[in-house]
Design a protein around this nucleic acid. Structure first.
Length: 211
DNA sequence: AGAATGATCCTCT
DNA sequence: GAGGATCATTCTC
């Protein structure tokens, strides 16, 4: 059964935790690729400086302000697409970043898309950029309706407990406990305990690009 | 118009 | 564990 549009139109933190254990699916002419969601991060409408929408609407983040249950896909670091689910009521910007999957179906297709040998399943979908590539998610999926094919979520039951830490890779709002994951799952993007709050110093200096 | 930045990943040591 | 790749978006002048 596919998760309905109303599933997403709720407070972001609640949707984030309920997404754990659900199956993310993408069907294409090349086949079907699916993975179980094991790690997510919530980005909130209010009091969250780490959220793209925290400084108002821009051309990039406009789908976050729209209907819940749409995909928010954007290009990051010049190399990767990141896949989010839009939450909250229409007009209220919120989203959940999908950070890691446990492959369920089509791991051969995923490995092919990743351009890497299928050395077991680890490394295929244990990171937000990796899973988007493995599922064939590209910028054209921005704004896609997730309550119908070809990109959708398959309802499933969760058995594991939920763990909470701070979010990965952001500079502002890095203190907030908004990263949720399935405890003990081997497909997480970072190992448990490797994400302790780092004491300052996050900016890298780079040499000037040109003269 | 020009420059800095970023919800990352890969390679090499 | 550290550093480079790489470019669209956003900010600043």
């Amino acid at each position: 059964m596919i998760l309905s549009q109303t599933f997403y139109s709720r407070p972001t933190r609640q949707v984030a935790q309920d997404l754990l254990g659900q199956i993310l699916v993408h069907e294409t002419p090349h086949g079907k690729a699916a993975g179980r969601i094991v790690e997510v991060e919530a980005y909130l409408p209010k009091n969250d400086p780490g959220c793209h929408a925290s400084r108002g609407m821009t051309p990039r983040n406009r789908v976050m302000f729209g209907q819940a249950g749409r995909a928010y896909v954007y290009f990051c670091y010049g190399n990767h697409y990141l896949f989010n689910v839009v939450t909250e009521k229409e007009g209220v910007p919120g989203a959940v970043l999908i950070r890691a999957l446990e492959p369920v179906e089509g791991s051969g297709l995923m490995a092919q898309r990743r351009g890497r040998p299928d050395t077991g399943d680890r490394g295929l979908t244990n990171g937000p950029g990796k899973l988007a590539q493995a599922l064939g998610i590209v910028k054209e999926h921005n704004g896609a309706r997730l309550w119908k094919k070809p990109v959708y979520l398959q309802k499933a039951r969760r058995e594991e407990n939920i763990g909470v830490t701070t979010r990965i890779g952001i500079t502002e709002g890095s203190e907030l406990p908004l990263r949720f994951y399935l405890e003990g799952n081997p497909y997480l993007s970072v190992k448990p305990g490797a994400d302790r709050p780092s004491p300052g110093k996050r900016k890298k200096l780079r040499p000037p690009r040109s003269l």
